[in-house]
Design a protein around this nucleic acid. Sequence first.
DNA 1: TATGAATGAGGCTTCATTCAT
DNA 2: TATGAATGAAGCCTCATTCAT
Lengths: 191, 191, 191, 191
Amino acid sequence: MSAKSDDKEILILEAALRIFSEKGYAQTRLSDVADEVGVAKGTLYLYFSSKEDLFRAAIIRELHLGEADVEQIANRSELLPHERLAAICENHLNYFAARRTWRIWITDRFEHDQKLSEEMQDFMQRYMQRIERIMEEEQVENVRIATLAFMGILDSFRNELMMQKQIVDMHQHIQERVNFVRSWFHRPNNI
Amino acid sequence: MSAKSDDKEILILEAALRIFSEKGYAQTRLSDVADEVGVAKGTLYLYFSSKEDLFRAAIIRELHLGEADVEQIANRSELLPHERLAAICENHLNYFAARRTWRIWITDRFEHDQKLSEEMQDFMQRYMQRIERIMEEEQVENVRIATLAFMGILDSFRNELMMQKQIVDMHQHIQERVNFVRSWFHRPNNI
Amino acid sequence: MSAKSDDKEILILEAALRIFSEKGYAQTRLSDVADEVGVAKGTLYLYFSSKEDLFRAAIIRELHLGEADVEQIANRSELLPHERLAAICENHLNYFAARRTWRIWITDRFEHDQKLSEEMQDFMQRYMQRIERIMEEEQVENVRIATLAFMGILDSFRNELMMQKQIVDMHQHIQERVNFVRSWFHRPNNI
Amino acid sequence: MSAKSDDKEILILEAALRIFSEKGYAQTRLSDVADEVGVAKGTLYLYFSSKEDLFRAAIIRELHLGEADVEQIANRSELLPHERLAAICENHLNYFAARRTWRIWITDRFEHDQKLSEEMQDFMQRYMQRIERIMEEEQVENVRIATLAFMGILDSFRNELMMQKQIVDMHQHIQERVNFVRSWFHRPNNI
DNA sequence: TATGAATGAGGCTTCATTCAT
DNA sequence: TATGAATGAAGCCTCATTCAT
């Protein structure tokens, strides 16, 4: 019973994330989500107290999933620091390459939802600290700024990926960008 | 008469951009915009045919204004190429430092508005071409990818600026990031 | 459940027809209809997609109901043809005598609604064909034109009925007009 | 000046009648009328106090114009009574044949406009009295009912004219119907 | 747990009317 | 007389949320 409920909750969260990301928050109707999962609208309210609550839960769940991936890469001590940055970049791009229908990245809700906003800031802080630790290992100067730059570069590559209508050889496309990151964040004197 | 109308149209566009940027598209009521300008709701419809049309016009106007700034900097041939990149970064950050109430950057409408989407893509293309030309002068490798990185870095710095509650010395904050860009995109062999 | 929904749909259609007919299309507020049925405005949209759709459905339903009556009379072979015309006239006048609050016959929507317009033309065609067949049996000359005349006469009698403030003896009023039709469309040589 | 003003008033009335008849009352915007005449919206208010007032004036003017035609025909004593009925029918059909873009006959306003309603009733009464007098000359029985029938027939022929997409030979079309009326209302014993 | 019919607040939009020029 | 920019009341429609079953 509990297992079954968990299943349904997860199904709802996955469908919600998918649709919110494709259509944006305001354009998403709860009936869309309910239809996608195959349940009645009212059922959503057995698991989430409001549209906002569902949105928040879906985003936070995804953040946590993504965080686990990044943590795992960050801990691969057999890789040189800049190799780990490249791996994080590769993971990031592969993630979005598999989600090219998600045309929208919904940021306006973050301002209106206190809880989500805080959760998001915490996530970003943890994420940045992980990157910063790698930057320090690589002996990069201006660690914080370089970390911001790294994150901006990843977002920019993601945007390119999502906006471009067709990418013929996705594997090569991603590798070129990963290589750029690898060499760009490689301090030569650091062997 | 014509002057007066132009004035009012511009007042509306400025108010609209301000409010859309603060509250997001869906959360903005046309009555908010009308109140801000000090006209009746119906008056908006003398200048714009719909909420969507007003939004589009406000965004496009801002893009054009921003474009003029960038073009001017890009043409300052007395500066070395990487100096021009730094100047574009500085301009970008100063622009948003003056607009810290704009908590939101509205991207979800871009997917829903064909005309705006195209206008945006054209703008981005022109913008990238300008940066790419500077990158070429600087003899950077992987011009396109480096350009994407540059733009991502600027966006990331902007986000940091907008998210952080308080920045004590804004001037220094910006200069540190500008310096980072200047040195980061400086190819030493290029004299 | 299905039964309940059907009931409500019919209640809405009946109320809508009544109010549209009393006030005209433009003067009718959907809130009037909702209030009359005793439901919320939004409920109407569970059954009909728009004001126009509701109007169309209400008219078409009434046409079909009326058509059944006429068909039944047209098939009463025990009556002489001109007796059947008289019976159709009687039915027509009784129908409107029971609906004297319907001050308005809404024709302007027919031009603006493609679907309704077609439905109406089909209905008129079937109606005319039925009358024409009776006219042929009666061996009237100029069957089509006589049919048009018959329909015009019915409408004119209906108008008189609707316009006149008071009709003392409604039964006699109707019988006089029915008798007129009976004798007017009776070809004496046709025995 | 007065002449000029009269001219403009008449131009407005003619344009108003045309557009109201083509689009219906509610669908007609005063800006449509103003554009058609080539004046500003505000100008209409120099001649008419409201949309309703303009509509009423336009209808009443047309009624009076039509009435003059009918009166003239009704007084042509050189014609036998049923010839005069036929002539009135011919006049009626020619009038609408020249106005086939007037798809709409606006009746719903009549209920909402006390003044117009009374004017209309007066007009109809005078019209009917004229027809009734001719019917009496023709020694028709049931004069009032026959008169109603006559008017219904005219309306029905008018509807046919307006609804039919194409009428190849308009002259013949009208003559057939006029002939029908002539013979139908001809009492043979009445010499 | 699950359903889905019903609700009703709230926004966008239209357009007759006004009034300063 | 003539203009047309500005007004604002009022209606259609959407959709998150509730609740009886």
